[in-house]
Design a protein around this nucleic acid. Structure first.
Lengths: 243, 243
DNA sequence: GAGTGGTCTAGACCACAGC
DNA sequence: CTGTGGTCTAGACCACTCG
């Protein structure tokens, strides 16, 4: 734990942070599990407690870890709550967060098309799983979503064990496959409803829909899921904070 | 600088942070001006340098201050660049950031309507300034925006000095009126183009538009500007990062 | 070289959770 | 009571900027 050449200088706490990040992302500690205490880690790594503290604070700032005074430091877990709160930004116009229910439309494997392979960084012809769902808010059809994931990452996701799939997938990815979604990039557009959209959503063709194109990445920045949603924003909006 | 009763306990560094924040938001130090060094502040406030450091790091995390190693700590300024980078999330589908030009459509004072007074937290009947602009990207009409600000905050903004208004307003608010936009909340919807929208944007009535409803707040969280934009997202998208 | 922020350490004490 | 994270201090040294 001592590398202090001036060219290629890298602060100690960053080395510690990256080491801990690696241990977390490889499952050395499981979600919701407590890490060793600051003093234990300091002793193990032969650095001062302050250095460990700074590393852990960094990880906490990236939501990789949760610190609780008097209890310990825990690997962040994707509860259904957190999935919703963090990755579902559609809010009712009255300010209430609506959690939608899901109706599976289709779920099948196939070879990745050019666009899918590009977004998910797959070799051409790799297998993917495509899930089409209709999502209802207060029993009204509100969102159509197409989810594409690499088949190799989630074997058995389309098997009989997983009918029906749960409402929030990210905690399932984490719990059952050890894949933690770390961040996501969304691209929003306004589009007109296709005839198929229109029928499923009880609208007229060409009605304005909010299209959300999301690419979700794991903790190491590898693309894991591509999701394309079309939303009726009659009584909903997408909320964003600019800070 | 010593208050350590257990009920109502408040960490020292937070007290320092809030004091510094206050000095910044009241203009005691101007944008782009350097703050006193850590050691000077520590001496002045009779706390240790580490405590000042933690306070300043907090302010830097909130983009209120910029720290530059070897040079000093500076009050964050809204350059046109930063305004764009931070508060303009529309990106070309090729990934390039397009900066739009503006064509003023209308600019006049009036009494705040119910919705305007509510959003801007004004007394009913207070005066507001309404600015309508058409924004062009590569000379193509792309966005219609209606900006509403309290007249009292920006006297003379509609005067002859400010025709034409600059492309980015936030740096002008800061430079000329001492009003710094600290954060903004946006609500996005898909809507159909009204006949007026359609004419200005060269579209058919009912064409899908991305509507961005933004409320911008100053450093103390007071609402300062309400902006309603309708965007053609044919070759554009709104980019959001979920982390 | 002088001054600034950035890192690292060591130690003391405080607030909080749980036994 | 013990152990945890959170705060505060004091001091040493490093990397960077500028004159």
């Amino acid at each position: 734990m001592t590398e202090t050449e001036t060219p290629g200088f890298r602060p100690l706490y960053q080395q510690v942070r990256d080491l801990l990040r690696q241990r977390i992302s490889t499952g050395h500690w499981r979600p919701d599990e407590a890490l060793p205490s600051e003093s234990r880690l300091a002793a193990e790594l032969k650095v001062s407690q302050g250095t460990v503290r700074k590393a852990l604070d960094d990880l906490a700032a990236q939501n990789l870890v949760v610190r609780r005074q008097g209890r310990g430091t825990f690997v962040a877990a994707h509860s259904a709550d957190r999935s919703l709160f963090h990755f579902f930004r559609l809010v009712g116009d009255d300010g209430e967060r609506k959690l939608p229910s899901s109706r599976m439309l289709d779920c099948r494997r196939g070879m990745a098309g050019a666009a899918e392979a590009a977004r998910l960084e797959l070799a051409p012809g790799a297998l993917v799983l495509r899930i089409d769902r209709l999502r209802l808010i207060r029993d009204q059809p509100a969102i159509i979503e197409r989810i594409v994931v690499p088949q190799a990452l989630f074997p058995g996701l389309d098997g009989p064990d997983h009918r029906p799939l749960p409402n929030t997938l990210y905690d399932l990815y984490q719990r059952e496959y050890g894949v933690t979604i770390g961040r996501a990039a969304e691209q929003l557009k306004a589009v007109g409803a296709s005839p198929e959209d229109a029928e499923l959503l009880h609208l007229r063709t060409g009605a304005p829909l909010l299209e959300i194109d999301r690419l979700a990445l794991d903790l190491d920045g590898r693309p894991v899921e591509w999701r394309l949603s079309r939303c009726v924003t009659e009584h909903l909006h997408y909320a964003a904070e600019l800070a």
